[in-house]
Amino acid sequence: MGSPVVEAVGVSKRYGEVIALDGVSLEVMEGEVFGLLGPNGAGKTTLMEILVGLRRPDSGKVRVAGRDPTREPVGDVVAFVPQETMLYGDLTVEENLEFIASLYSMDEERFEVAVREIAEALSISDIMGRRFGKLSGGLKRRVSLAASLLTDPIVVIMDEPTVGLDPDARRDFWEVILDMKGRGRTVILSTHYMEEADELCDRVAVMDAGRVVEVGDPDDLKRRFGGRSKVVVRVRMRDEARALEVLSGWGGRLTPDGIVMEAEDPERMVPEVISTLNSAGIGSEAVQIRSPTLEDVFMNLTGKSLREAVA
């Protein structure tokens, strides 16, 4: 891993009475994919907008690619891919890109080379003449990313890049992000999808209520804060109450995924659970072993479920 390309030290920001960021400090290394994991309102977007110079912190210091975004523009070295696509529906894809290029006083020759390369990399060459407003959500995200990459930035900051995309489009987008990493770009992305952070990020900062609770690589976080593996049992709804009763010895609790029990030795526990259920005349629909996830990490660190916090 290289040297820090993004640094935040003691960054705080309030909106009236609401504390959006409360002394956030973190470092993002050159060439890594860094995830900000947390529910809505955790302060992820505010932190990213401070990093790109859209907002000023009330206190604390920020440096991005060697510049202080509160004092000088960083638009040429840092790209921000916002949650909303922030382009013009009545213009074609090419016209949108041409407009964004004009905001950086890009000459025609440089623009054409950049557009050709980016369009190819993001597979949008064949939609350049289409109206932006008529594109699907996945294509809009790609074009929005293309617009952000026109200036060949060092750092790409993406706010919830896959929200609202279907699973296929999300997977496609993940490939695009990994491709950027492959090209040596530093990527910071916010997400509340645990599997996204798990799949893409070299390191993750767990954020809650404006604070960074913990930073580390996903596997390390799961090992340290994920707790024990779990056995998850799904039974028919009408059997749930009785199943909970017979599995109470293992500390079973009902969740949206089924009845969850912590396990020291899950491989040994599964046949015992099935046998107990069968003896009670309860058929199990599914029994699975679940390793610790970032959801468990979040739960253990904040006392809240990430999914509940997002909802």
Binding site: V52, G53, L54, P73, G75, D76, F80, P82, E84, M86, L87, Y88, I100, L103, Y104, S105, A147
Partner: peptide, 10 residues
């Protein structure tokens, strides 16, 4: 929201 995009530029 396009103002953000404009303000992000140089």
């Amino acid at each position: 929201g396009t103002l953000k995009r404009i303000r992000l530029s140089t």
